[in-house]
């Protein structure tokens, strides 16, 4: 299982939202770390074929995803950054509809819904209208739909936005459990979301991939003249600030 991006480029007008991005993803959790506007969502939109690519190739097991089309989408789970839900539907109605869109066989749908609802701790409110949910609950509904049908490739765009610390930790744990035998891409600008679970972290700045390495490697990669933020040892925060600091947009 391999998702290979090569020289992937996306321009909005003159601006390059993503410049010649190349990386190969295999099983495991990948943290895409970058400030707002760094190009994380653009990357995810390209992988989910929601925006048009201006150059490069995205191949899944050797075939371009545009060619794979629906059969790539069959193994894809996507949680968009923007909260896009049908507020008037119940949680169950919403998941049932998306399960159908994901080509999950009708008879398996009830079990599948129950599974993802349990996983995201929403089983009690499955018959409630989504409009009555808090921001965190809506976020979990979106996560639940991404996990429908056990996708091989899971694309999570800032999944922890709007969650309280408790929910944040819980979500991180789910994702960690989920990650066996699949490719998980998790975009965030919050270091703590990924430092404990990501096998590899990709630092993205102004559309460019600055560095990609395991958390440990990243910490040892800091030049000698960098001083830790606090205390006497480095954390990932130091890495973030060193590579991505002096935030242009924030």
């Amino acid at each position: 299982m391999e998702l290979k991006l090569e020289n992937v480029t996306k321009r909005y007008g003159q601006k390059e939202a993503l410049s010649a991005f190349s990386h190969t993803f295999r099983e495991g959790i990948y943290g895409i770390l970058g400030a707002n506007g760094a190009g994380k969502s653009t990357l995810m939109n390209l992988i989910t074929d929601n925006v048009k690519r201006d150059g490069g190739s995205i191949e899944y097991n050797g075939t371009d995803i545009l060619k794979l089309g629906d059969s790539f989408r069959d193994i894809l789970g996507y949680m968009p950054q923007q909260q896009g839900l049908y507020e008037g539907m119940t949680a169950e109605g919403f998941l049932a509809y998306l399960a159908r869109l994901k080509r999950i066989p009708g008879r398996k749908i009830p079990r599948e819904i129950t599974r993802v609802l349990r996983l995201t701790n929403l089983a009690d409110v499955r018959h409630d209208k989504i409009s009555s949910f808090s921001g965190g609950m809506k976020q979990r509904v979106l996560l639940a739909q991404a996990m429908l049908g056990d996708p091989q490739v899971l694309i999570l765009d800032e999944p922890t936005a709007g969650l309280d610390p408790k929910e944040r930790v819980r979500l991180r744990n789910y994702i960690f459990e989920l990650a066996q035998n699949r490719i998980v891409l998790l975009a965030t600008h919050i270091v703590s979301d990924i430092e404990a679970i990501a096998g590899e972290i990709l630092l993205l700045k102004q559309g460019k991939l600055i560095k990609a390495a395991s958390p440990k490697e990243l910490m040892t990669s800091l030049p000698a003249d960098v001083k830790p933020l606090m205390g006497s040892y480095f954390t990932l925060e130091d890495v973030y600030l060193h590579y991505l600091g002096e935030d242009p947009d924030e």
Binding site: N45, N50, R73, Q82, G84, L85, E87
Partner: peptide, 18 residues
């Protein structure tokens, strides 16, 4: 408006079928 277009379009039946 609801931001669901992306979601639908990431699913196999969310495109031509929908």
């Amino acid at each position: 408006q609801g931001g669901t277009a992306r979601l639908l379009r990431s699913m196999s039946r969310g495109r031509s079928r929908v």
